[in-house]
Nucleic acid binder design. Structure first.
Length: 242
DNA sequence: TCCATTTGACCACA
DNA sequence: TGTGGTCAAATGGA
């Protein structure tokens, strides 16, 4: 496959017209190889904090998408020009709740590796933001429940779901780490997994009997079910071939 | 003055 | 031909 760096090197020494042409040439290469099932990573994520994921992004476009209430915003890595980092993400609000939930679609991995580890540390903050937002929502919905045993049980269930999601993500990261060879990331994700487990174990379990959360306490996620906080996009051509 | 964001226009693809 | 993704000039803030 043609290296993107080759194209990016060309970018720096050509006119705008040639720049655009090379960009399209590269897009054609990507699409061509996509047809041949070459690995290009894409994943979707639902989050309350779409703008703080540990990386620096620059917005390059916004578009109303047919059938969507809210516009989709297009971001690429700040180091796109400097280091040719191909990472991009699309952010679209998926509901009008307070706080609103956003769907973020990440495309391509960062090659600006100096910010890589901090991303995974940011992930723990990110998950904490999700948990906090979720619990605030529950508290606002039924403040009296927070102060009774049943309320504690419901909150524990809510936390269970969130932390379970975190562990799923971290386990996924562990697998990804072996692919890209970032040992440091593995250490951090293991630490995060341990943090999540200890956090999980430290939550007092007032009611050992699983309780079904009433409707007003369930998180309104719109389309995605809770088990799909982080969703891998199966585009049908992820398989790496020799 | 520099840099990030906005926004209309352009292009590729289905 | 409609839709989604990207570009780049214009604009605004630090």
């Amino acid at each position: 496959m043609a290296k993107r760096d080759d194209y990016m090197a060309s970018f720096s020494s050509c006119s705008n017209g040639a720049h655009k042409r090379l960009s399209r040439d590269f897009s054609s290469h990507v699409q061509e190889h996509a047809k041949k099932r070459v690995c290009i990573s894409t994943r979707a994520e639902y989050t309350y904090a779409p703008y703080h994921d540990g990386y620096q992004w620059r917005k390059y476009g916004q578009k109303m998408i047919r059938g969507n209430t809210y516009p989709r915003c297009y971001y690429r890595c700040t180091f796109h020009q400097d280091h040719g980092c191909p990472a991009t993400k699309h952010v679209e609000q998926s509901n009008s709740n307070d706080p609103p939930l956003f769907r973020v679609i990440y495309t391509n991995e960062h090659t600006c590796s100096d910010t890589y580890v901090s991303d995974y540390m940011a992930s723990s903050i990110h998950i904490q933001q999700i948990a906090d937002a979720s619990l605030r929502k529950a508290e606002m919905a039924t403040p009296s429940l927070i102060h009774c045993d049943a309320g504690h049980g419901l909150i524990k269930e809510e936390k269970d779901a969130i932390i379970s999601s975190l562990l799923t993500v971290i386990n996924g990261c562990d697998a990804a780490a072996s692919d890209v060879g970032h040992a440091a990331m593995q250490e951090n994700t293991s630490a995060l997994a341990q943090m999540a487990r200890s956090s999980y174990e430290s939550i007092p379990s007032v009611s050992p009997i699983p309780l079904a959360a009433p409707d007003e306490l369930k998180m309104d996620l719109g389309e995605p079910p809770e088990s799909h906080w982080f969703e891998a996009l199966d585009l049908g051509w992820f398989t790496q071939t020799g």
